[in-house]
Simulated scan of single mutants.
Amino acid sequence: MADLSSFPITKKWPASNPDIIQLYSLPTPNGVKVSIALEELGLPYEPHRIEFGPEGVKSPEFVSLNPNGRIPAIIDPDGPGGKPIGLFESGAILIYLAEKTGKLIPADAAARYETICWVMFQMGGIGPMFGQFGHFYKFAADKVANNSYPMERYRDETKRLLSVLEGRLKDRRWIMGDEHTIADIATYPWVRGADVFYGGREVLDYAGFPAVTAWLERCLARPAAQKGLDIPAKA
Rank of each mutant, 00 (worst) to 15 (best):
K159Q: 02
P232L: 00
G177A: 10
L4M: 04
L65A: 01
A109T: 06
I85V: 14
K143R: 12
A211R: 10
I126G: 07
I71G: 04
R222E: 12
F139L: 15
F121H: 12
G131R: 01
R153Q: 02
P27F: 01
M151T: 15
A110Q: 15
P14K: 03
E99P: 06
A225T: 14
G102V: 03
A107F: 12
I21P: 00
G79H: 04
P223A: 14
L169N: 13
S35T: 05
K58I: 05
C219E: 05
P47G: 00
P29Y: 07
R49A: 11
G131P: 04
I85T: 01
A92F: 04
P223M: 11
L229C: 12
A92T: 14
G127W: 10
K33C: 02
D108V: 13
R201H: 12
I9K: 04
S148D: 15
E55G: 06
L229R: 09
K170Y: 09
P67E: 07
V203W: 00
S5T: 13
A2P: 02
P18T: 10
F52E: 09
D142Y: 12
P106E: 07
K83T: 02
P223S: 07
D195T: 06
E202A: 14
A2G: 01
A211Q: 13
G69E: 08
Q226M: 14
A92N: 12
P106T: 07
P232K: 05
M120E: 09
T10I: 13
V119S: 01
D205I: 09
S35V: 08
G131T: 02
R173Y: 11
Q226I: 12
L161P: 06
F52G: 08
A183C: 13
E217Q: 15
E89F: 11
R201T: 06
E157F: 06
V32N: 04
A214C: 10
V119W: 08
D156Q: 06
Q226G: 13
P18D: 02
K234S: 14
A211P: 13
A235L: 00
M1C: 14
P223R: 14
L23M: 03
R222W: 00
Y198Q: 08
L162T: 04
I175D: 06
P232C: 02
P67Q: 05
R218H: 09
D178S: 15
A98M: 02
P80M: 12
E61Q: 14
Q122D: 11
D205W: 06
L26A: 13
G56H: 02
F139V: 15
A145D: 08
F130N: 00
S16F: 04
I182C: 13
N147E: 09
A225E: 09
K103I: 10
P18N: 03
Q122K: 12
D184S: 00
L97W: 06
W190C: 05
T181M: 07
Q132G: 10
L220C: 12
V34H: 03
Y149L: 07
G228M: 02
N68T: 03
P27W: 05
P150Q: 00
G56M: 07
C219Y: 14
V164H: 12
S90W: 10
D171E: 09
I85P: 01
L41H: 05
L65S: 01
C117P: 00
A98W: 06
T10W: 04
Y149G: 01
E46V: 05
L23W: 01
D171Y: 11
S6D: 12
L162G: 08
W118S: 09
